[in-house]
Computed example of a mutant assay.
Amino acid sequence: MREKTITGKNQKEKYKFLAVVAFFLVSGMFYSHSFYGGSLELGEEITAEQIGVVEGTTLPAEDMLGKIDINIATVTELESLSGIGSTRAADIIKYREENGNFGRIEDIMKVSGIGEKTFEEIKERITVGE
């Protein structure tokens, strides 16, 4: 059986791969440091109180996104709202272009297809630039 040897080309590919892996590991460390506002030691734990979560509760991912200004939001931002798809998001933008900015968040119900039920689902996530 013939043993496989590593040629110079294979060695370069190996180092390129390792450099890419190292880049992502280091990027992840910087991201987690900036996201959490500090650093953790290996094995250190974070309590729910430290990040502002009451023990035993969960937060939907959309709660972490912050409020969306419906007067300047893009289609993509509007689509992140519960019950708002691409068609409804386009309707919101069209309404805004034709009628001007929304004066209060309740005005979004003037857009065809957005009623009280949808408004109740999104009212905590929207703003009019307050």
Rank of each mutant, 00 (worst) to 15 (best):
L42S: 09
L25R: 01
L18M: 13
G43Y: 07
K12V: 14
A48G: 05
T47Y: 08
I114W: 04
I93W: 06
N101M: 05
G37L: 06
A22C: 11
Y95K: 03
E79W: 09
L65G: 11
G85R: 08
T127D: 07
Y36D: 07
G43D: 11
S80H: 10
E44F: 06
M1N: 10
T7L: 11
S112T: 08
R125Y: 14
K117D: 04
G56F: 02
Y15V: 14
K16D: 09
E77V: 09
E77T: 09
I108R: 04
F17A: 11
L59V: 08
K4N: 10
K16L: 13
E45R: 12
T7V: 00
V21K: 08
R104G: 01
K67E: 12
E79I: 06
E121I: 03
N71D: 00
E3Y: 00
G37A: 06
G28T: 11
S112F: 02
E13T: 10
E55W: 02
M29P: 00
A19K: 09
T118C: 04
V21G: 03
E45F: 08
K67P: 00
P60V: 05
R104N: 12
F23P: 07
G85L: 08
V53L: 15
T47W: 00
V128S: 02
E130D: 13
K9A: 10
S34F: 13
K12F: 12
I68Q: 03
R88A: 07
R104T: 08
G113M: 04
